[in-house]
């Protein structure tokens, strides 16, 4: 069956727009959030948020005295607090950047109109 060149070229044009949108929203989403997740995991090697949360009632350095337990809860809480802030800031900034990114095409379209 012979191909109609006009419909082929029209389809190519539509596909090009589809690809642009797919790259802008889907490909960048995976790449960007992959990067953010990797960065957060790397950061977790220092903050150990989940591990600290699981060990919140364990004393530091196996000091099973009353003071050890108190200090454990105290220091772990501080770590969780600051760690939580750092994670939250990173997540908020990352979300904001992505939000700006996804908004660019619709904003441009709105401006054009």
């Amino acid at each position: 069956m012979q191909t109609n060149p006009f419909s082929y070229l029209f389809l190519r044009g539509i596909q090009a727009i589809e690809r642009f949108l797919s790259h802008w929203y889907i490909l960048v989403f995976y790449a960007y959030w992959g990067y953010v997740t990797r960065s957060l995991l790397a950061l977790d090697r220092y903050f150990a948020f989940r591990v600290t949360l699981l060990n919140i009632f364990n004393p530091l350095y196996q000091d099973y005295s009353f003071l050890g337990y108190v200090l454990g809860i105290f220091f772990r809480s501080i770590l969780l607090f600051f760690g939580g802030i750092v994670y939250a800031v990173i997540l908020i900034v990352a979300l904001a950047i992505y939000f700006v990114w996804v908004s660019i095409p619709p904003i441009l379209v709105l401006r054009i109109l």
């Binding site: 596909q15 727009i17 690809r19 802008w24 095409p105 401006r111």
Partner: peptide, 26 residues
């Protein structure tokens, strides 16, 4: 016209994307 400049910007993004992924399959 600012409308046309925005259109030019959007078009430039579209063309840069096409250039960047020129060797990729559909």
């Amino acid at each position: 016209s600012s409308h046309l400049r925005y259109a030019g910007f959007l078009l430039a993004l579209f063309l840069l994307d096409a250039l960047f992924y020129r060797n990729e399959a559909m």
